[in-house]
Design a protein around this nucleic acid. Structure first.
Length: 687
RNA sequence: GGUCCGGUAGCUCAGUUGGUUAGAGCAGGGGACUCAUAAUCCCUUUGUCGGGGGUUCGAGUCCCUCCCGGACUACCA
């Protein structure tokens, strides 16, 4: 181990203040917390900074909907976030907020540097403005008809039907999803950063010194750096919840400008409290800076952010560690399946150590998604943690509760020494963020320790008073081997390390404690350290997540009359009621009951199934429906559905689609076909 | 479509710069033990290392090609 003490500043991405922490977020915070705890255990001067990300249109809109101030909303969210993190034993050195004085000042300072460097330019941008809501509309708050293919109800940026991209202003018949009204096109002055001026620097920075995982460096090279970099639209016109740009009244910094500066602002807060100098951390070559982020925000952290830092004279990140997303049982987290589990819901039912260990056992330095298989979760925690590790202590501690550990460490056939040596490999694995490898190595050690106990049978030795010394020696060895494991696991399982410290009267504070056996100390009464995971607790958690998924959104809405089904307002909010239409308008759409007579996969299509609908009497239609992720062809054949029978046929990549099947839901696997009640027959019109 | 990452025992994966009969954990089967939260220990079954070509004395490991799975696809966040 290098004896020079490294100074390391670490960050996780800032959680956004419009929702609670869930188990997907926790992949990142746990990954980071483990790394930080490891560094601290190694004796490095490591600090972990984070903050809530509080600005942007989404916060503004939500505060309005909940009829309160943004400040109140973000304060409440922050309190909730901090509670969740604390209960998962995620320990920040400072947890700030992007809505802070420190951040405002730093934004202004960095902004000025970017201005001075000649990177800012002004351009007029045409954007849709919702006159009723009194706000410009981000692309995702607009829906309308695709200018290219005529598909209706498409988002403001690209068409999900034909895939073409356009600006919201090009949409035919656009509607605001906030008010349902037709927005008008307004031109506004936006400020842009000419990133292209930094192209060469970014090319070099991203491709050298192992700052990024190879697949990421490669990806940037192919996707962004191969072409001229586009100007980055850094301002938003009022109204906007954020910081107003000092030299451009009426314009606000876009949330992605001030969010990463929040890393520095949080550090500043900490420095002020600790009497440290900010420049020693953010402008010093003696300090390492490590960012941990999810793959979704790669380009903000690997292009814009280094560009900003470079221009403003700050030091650049040593490394950006990028992780994948969480899937549960091989699928995206889903509210309806109950796999969208909030941190709080988890804590209500399960021990945080379980998840800490499970994630550690799955995480590597790669960008791959990690899967939380519920069966595997139970097996891993119970077998590894309870069966192999904790069991070592619980089967030997009580035999020496009275006498303590032997005065000298007995001959153990090289077990302790071996485990001490493996410690270097484990440390390397932690350092490289290859936690799954670290966990494998540690469990390999546990697999050597248990047979030792088995062979030496302390439970027999204790029956013979003449073998008291032997008994004490065997338990001394077992407990020391256990303690080594607890030390190696302590970045992942701080609570277990604490309990081990209490049991043996020697707190675990340093990695090198694993190199020297503990002898001659008393052993305290053994207390249970970790319970097995009960499948029923896991099931209850999943069930509860199904309920809260629906109820959560309702909580913020105005409480309604007799809402006995507890239906949330989320779906309606996402897509408000359309403008009034006349009966004649309605009758233009010919809805019919139809029977699916065949359904098949379409080769090469990602979302589509090819259906043949029968309207009875031999009349059929071919329809391509985007329901592949939600339905198997076999389960569709024979069922009745409602279809649009007079929709203009559309030529699709895979053939002609002559109609539409009516369904609800946001899309993907969340698509719900409508079924008529019994008695309906194909061909009947719906009205 | 493009880019990238994968495809090794039923499952999750390890296999370093190519080198003897391909490994671990879990699950399965058999046995032992009873100190421990039915934990632990011993023995044990299973693989055309995605397919096909090639380079080599020798390939899971290198090259080509095909098949399959996944992620990403910015100018929304």
């Amino acid at each position: 181990m290098p004896m020079t003490k490294r100074r390391i500043l670490v960050t996780s991405a800032l959680p956004y203040a419009n929702g609670p922490i869930h188990i997907g977020h926790l992949v990142e915070y746990l990954q980071t917390d483990i790394w930080v705890r490891f560094q601290k255990l190694r004796g490095n001067d490591c600090r972990y900074m984070c903050a809530d990300d509080t600005h942007g249109t989404a916060i503004m809109i939500r505060a309005r909907q909940e009829n309160r101030s943004e400040e109140e909303l973000i304060a409440e969210m922050q309190a909730s976030h901090e509670r969740d993190f604390a209960d998962f034993e995620i320990e920040f050195d400072n947890f700030g907020s992007t809505h802070s004085d420190e951040n405002r000042e730093l934004c202004a300072e960095i902004w000025q540097s970017i201005r001075d460097a000649g990177l800012v330019k002004e351009k007029d941008v045409e954007q849709l403005f919702d006159t009723e809501a009194g706000t410009f509309l981000a692309d995702r708050f607009v829906r309308g008809t695709c200018p290219k293919c005529g598909a209706t109800d498409q988002p403001g940026d690209n068409c999900s039907s034909c895939g073409s991209t356009y600006s919201p202003a090009e949409l035919v018949d656009p509607k605001s999803t906030l008010s349902g009204t037709t927005p008008e096109i307004r031109s506004a002055k936006h400020l842009f950063i000419e990133l292209e001026q930094l192209h060469e620097f970014l090319n070099d920075w991203t491709q050298s010194d192992d700052r990024l995982q190879p697949e990421i460096a490669n990806y940037l090279k192919g996707h962004f750096l191969g072409d001229p970099l586009r100007d980055w639209d850094i301002s938003r016109p009022a109204p906007y919840f954020g910081f107003e740009i000092p030299d451009s009244p009426g314009n606000y910094w876009y949330v992605w400008f001030d969010a990463p500066i929040g890393y520095i602002a949080s550090t500043k807060q900490w420095c002020d409290k600790q009497g440290e100098k900010l420049d020693d951390w953010w402008k010093s070559d003696d300090c390492e800076i490590h960012h941990f982020i999810g793959k979704d925000i790669t380009y903000f952290h690997t292009l814009f952010w280094p560009g900003m830092l470079k221009t403003a004279g700050y030091r650049l990140p040593t490394k950006v560690h990028i992780h994948g997303f969480l899937t549960v049982d091989g699928e995206k987290m889903s509210k309806s399946k109950g796999t969208f589990v909030n941190a709080r819901t988890y804590l209500d039912h399960l021990n945080p150590s379980y998840l800490r260990y499970f994630y550690a056992s799955k995480l590597s330095a790669k960008v791959d998604d990690i899967d939380l298989s519920l069966d595997e979760f139970i097996a891993k925690v119970n077998t590894d943690l309870v069966g192999k590790v904790v069991n070592l202590a619980s089967r030997s501690a009580k035999f020496v509760a009275k006498v303590g550990l032997s005065a000298e460490y007995p001959d153990d056939g090289g077990l302790f020494e071996h485990a001490a040596a493996v410690g270097d490999q484990i440390a390397e694995a932690y350092e490289a963020c290859d936690y799954s490898r670290a966990m494998r190595l540690i469990m390999g050690l546990a697999d050597r320790a248990n047979p030792f106990v088995e062979e030496n049978k302390p439970w027999e030795l204790r029956k013979d008073a003449a073998q008291a010394q032997q008994l004490q020696d065997v338990c001394t060895i077992a407990l020391n081997l256990f303690r080594q494991l607890a030390i190696y696991l302590s970045p992942v399982l701080p609570r277990l390390a604490e309990q081990t410290g209490e049991l043996l009267g020697d707190p675990i504070t340093n990695w090198d404690q694993a190199k020297t056996p503990l002898v001659g100390t008393p052993v305290n009464k053994f207390k249970h350290m970790l319970k097995r995971v009960e499948e029923k607790d896991l099931k209850t958690m999943i069930e509860e997540s199904k309920e809260t998924g629906e109820a959560a959104s309702a909580a913020g809405e105005t409480a309604t009359f007799e809402d006995k089904w507890n239906d949330g307002g989320e779906a309606l909010a996402a897509e408000p009621r359309a403008e009034e239409c006349s009966y004649d308008d309605f009758m233009k759409v010919d809805l019919r009951v139809a029977r699916i007579v065949s359904a098949e996969q379409v080769e090469g299509a990602r979302k589509l199934l090819k259906l043949r609908l029968s309207l009875g009497g031999g009349e059929t239609m071919q329809v391509f429906a985007g329901i592949k992720a939600a339905y198997e062809p076999e389960q569709l054949v024979g069922r009745l559905v409602v279809c649009v029978a007079n929709l203009a046929p559309r030529k699709m990549k895979f053939g002609l689609s002559e109609g539409m099947v009516v369904a609800s839901g946001p899309g993907g696997s969340e698509v719900f076909l409508l079924s008529p009640d019994d008695g309906a027959v194909p061909g009947q019109r719906v009205h």
